[in-house]
Write a protein that binds this DNA or RNA. Sequence first.
DNA 1: ATCATAGTCGTCTGCCTGACGATAAACACT
DNA 2: AGTGTTTATCGTCAGGCAGACGACTATGAT
Lengths: 252, 252
Amino acid sequence: MPYDPSAFPPFAVTVDLVVLTVRRHALCSLAIRRGEAPFQGRWALPGGFVRADEDLSQAAARELVEETGLCAHDPAAPAQDNGAHLEQLATYGDPKRDPRMRVVSVAHLALAPDLPAPRAGGDASNARWAPVEELLQQGGYGRDGEPVAPLAFDHAQILADGVERARSKIEYSSLATAFCPSEFTVGELRRVYEAVWGVVLDPRNFHRKVTGTPGFLVPTGGTTTRQGGRPAQLFRAGGATLLNPPMLRPEV
Amino acid sequence: MPYDPSAFPPFAVTVDLVVLTVRRHALCSLAIRRGEAPFQGRWALPGGFVRADEDLSQAAARELVEETGLCAHDPAAPAQDNGAHLEQLATYGDPKRDPRMRVVSVAHLALAPDLPAPRAGGDASNARWAPVEELLQQGGYGRDGEPVAPLAFDHAQILADGVERARSKIEYSSLATAFCPSEFTVGELRRVYEAVWGVVLDPRNFHRKVTGTPGFLVPTGGTTTRQGGRPAQLFRAGGATLLNPPMLRPEV
DNA sequence: ATCATAGTCGTCTGCCTGACGATAAACACT
DNA sequence: AGTGTTTATCGTCAGGCAGACGACTATGAT
């Protein structure tokens, strides 16, 4: 059959972002309050249309900068600071996922260190870091006692998939360091694992594991007492990306 | 900003399939010869446009049936036979990946047992199972001495990603059984791992591992000598989907 | 009868993990 | 200055699992 431009239906293609960070010992996601219908006033994941001339990863990186100011880590140039990890998550294309039209959304997952307050087009009240637990509970009540509305569209599913990806990926990769500032202690890294997995880990075994894995951490020589207690060595992320053998997530 | 239908560029959305199987101790992928420009006469992955009223996974399952006659395993009803595993792989949307227009392709990965000859729209000469090694080598010569043209579009990248997904996924899941018929022996399952990973495994340690993992294999009671040698017990896939601890892929 | 092939059961050793004791170095009190 | 608290770090020990490999079994082929 010859090429026929009318043989396919037109789609809108967007990127949505699951931006995760660890704040106050909790795994948090960036959420944006919708200013327009549908789902006006409800919380949603940041995202937007893919432009005609840009790749999907470019679109995701652009949205990330627009929403957070974060520069996505280019895998080819992992040297720069303040860079978040960014990877494609999955694509969602249910015909009814957007009531207005047929939209296919390519969701991306970003892991970022703890940041100052977010901004959404300059309006801070319409963007926030919310614990994923709070965003994912349906029809419950938040910590402030107010009723919690579920996320817009299918964003609860996307967020859940992103969280699950993050949880499994820090098992066998060194990605947990993407949640840390450029220099961090073993204890800070452990608190990242504890927050993402929602478990408590043995500090001694964790220390043995991460310091004993070649290429995972490189000491910077400095120490810090910002967590209180005995001064802790500072490290930065080493070159290794894969953890072998993996970090074991405790059984339920 | 209000909703404006002209605010986004239109895209064509397709699904492409990486259909993998194990034939004659080699990991093979389904390839279709293109009958039209661009890349006319070159091999490509099967795929097609997503219809206006179908979900992405529905489109992938439909293409799979059209190309192979395989029914995709519905995760909710894993009882049926002859069902292939089907999952979303990744989405490819480089603006220049299709010279005709802006196409975003949602690639899916299917794992199937060894099948009779494939068909492509009824024309068997335009569809074949080819060793992935052969499809991925660029500018070399195939086993028959003929020069090998690279796959059309970015399908070499998609195939490589699918193969890598399959290789890593059989480590920590029981998905390798998707390459086997409904009843199989431990040795046949081992040859699947050997073909997908391109390694040689110790039959004794492999046997201990798979029979010692609860829920991985359930004996059917029958035996077979179809591989020669001493009769081997027949098994079918158990209910377990996750392998913990995982099957370890030998170091390079 | 002998051989080749493939399957199955054991043994041993080394590595890694989980559990947990012990020590070290800071700060906050009194 | 001493005492308690907190966090970091080092060590020890037992159990589980994987890799290496020996031994035996049950078929078909010659």
